[in-house]
Design a binder for these strands. Structure first.
Lengths: 224, 224
DNA sequence: CCAAAAGTGTTGGTTTTACACCCATGG
DNA sequence: CCATGGGTGTAAAACCAACACTTTTGG
């Protein structure tokens, strides 16, 4: 009894999502372990077939919810991959997304059996399909966006220190930034404001906590 | 006798292409006139259903060839639109592309009956489907790319005057630029070189003709 | 008192902007 | 000789890059 939905499945439109976060000072990406063929046991991006009654955006949101337990996070469409042989099962087109979230919002509990894990972006294992290529492309996009938008807020907790903010940039751009120049410039952008709290607990001088004034994404001239 | 290809047709994946050019001092886009339902007689982007044995890139190239008689031109994927109701016939997903070409490379001869025309981007008629939205998005992308790549070469003839180059920027960005600053900056980028020819024929001082040193697309820091 | 990270300014170089006049040609 | 667009430089302001020491805390 093939339903209308099966048409999509035969035609093969999947949505795959690159979900980035920062953990332990490194940029990480959520990868599942495939539990059937093809590429059984191999790491892959969380994804799934698009349903006939959902948009690609909705499919991406569903996948994020089902596989990583996150919702209402920054998500944008990345690219549509359509190489003829990208999936050994036959013709499958993938609409890919990339998403950003603070580590503490990810919750793998209740996700299915596919052993999702946060793997370090700069030391990836072998991946299924063309997912490595997709990741390379999303890193490029993430870096570009970091420099002319304020999306970094998506990776941070609601309040954060300037050092944490700077580290987020350094981790993603994979280079050191000058502390004084960074602070001067970032503060002059007017996107963040100091709270009256401090981050305590280290055996060191407590750092002022900041927050973003707005959580809407904004286009900026140029950051760095 | 439904063939395998029909699966795609039912599932509905189209490729639509925004082809920009510059003519008579204005930014123009190729639009066809639909010759059947839905939106019979209404202007729309050139496009067509993706075939099962071609990639999206190949479909875009095919459409450019069939509808505008152009080939080997700058083309990049733009976005995939998947709203549930974007096509009244049913579920149709559109993978869109944008492309740039010099006016004199376009040849509508031999294209089918759909009356392709170059319409001015800033005075568009009512368009079929969500094609207006697609155009708005491509203009955004074009403007962004213009500022940090050298794609403008795609819109110009092989040799051109600095005034023509500046006008291309002005037309697309829709604002005036300062002549001296433009020349100083553009020449300092080292992308173009003077030829020994001049553009003659006006009742005015002849302008030096320049050419791009390379036709590969290059990323640049920032143009303007 | 020590270790650790927080916090803070200045200088020199580069880039960007604003702005107006003379030149070469064709008719 | 006139109308047209071609071609050129300078000064002020803004921006960027390089660089090192003092402060505050917890243990």
């Amino acid at each position: 009894m093939p339903s209308k939905m099966d048409i999509f499945k035969i035609a093969g439109i999947t949505v795959d999502v690159v979900l980035f976060t920062i953990e332990d000072g490194s940029l990480r990406v959520v990868l599942i372990q495939r539990d059937n063929e093809p590429y059984h046991g191999v790491r892959a991006l969380p994804g799934g077939f698009m349903q006939e009654n959902e948009t690609a955006d909705a499919a991406a949101a569903r996948i994020l919810r089902e596989k990583a337990g996150v919702k209402d996070i920054y998500t944008e469409q990345l690219y549509t991959f359509s190489d003829l042989r990208r999936d050994p099962r036959g013709r499958v087109i993938s609409i890919t997304y990339f998403a950003l979230v603070a580590r503490d919002q990810i919750n793998f509990k209740g996700s299915d059996l596919q052993a999702p894990a946060l793997l370090p972006m700069y030391h990836l294992p072998h991946l299924a399909f063309d997912h490595k290529q997709i990741l390379v492309y999303s890193l490029e996009r993430l870096r570009a966006k970091l420099e002319y938008t304020n999306i970094v807020y998506s990776l941070l907790t609601p309040t954060f220190t300037l050092t944490q903010l700077q580290q987020a940039y350094e981790i993603i751009l994979d280079r050191k930034l000058d502390k004084r120049n960074f602070r001067k410039k970032y503060l002059s952008l007017g996107l963040i404001q100091a709270t009256k709290q401090f981050e305590r607990g280290g055996r060191r001088r407590p750092a002022v906590l900041y927050r973003f004034k707005a959580q809407e994404i904004e286009q900026l001239k140029k950051f760095f």
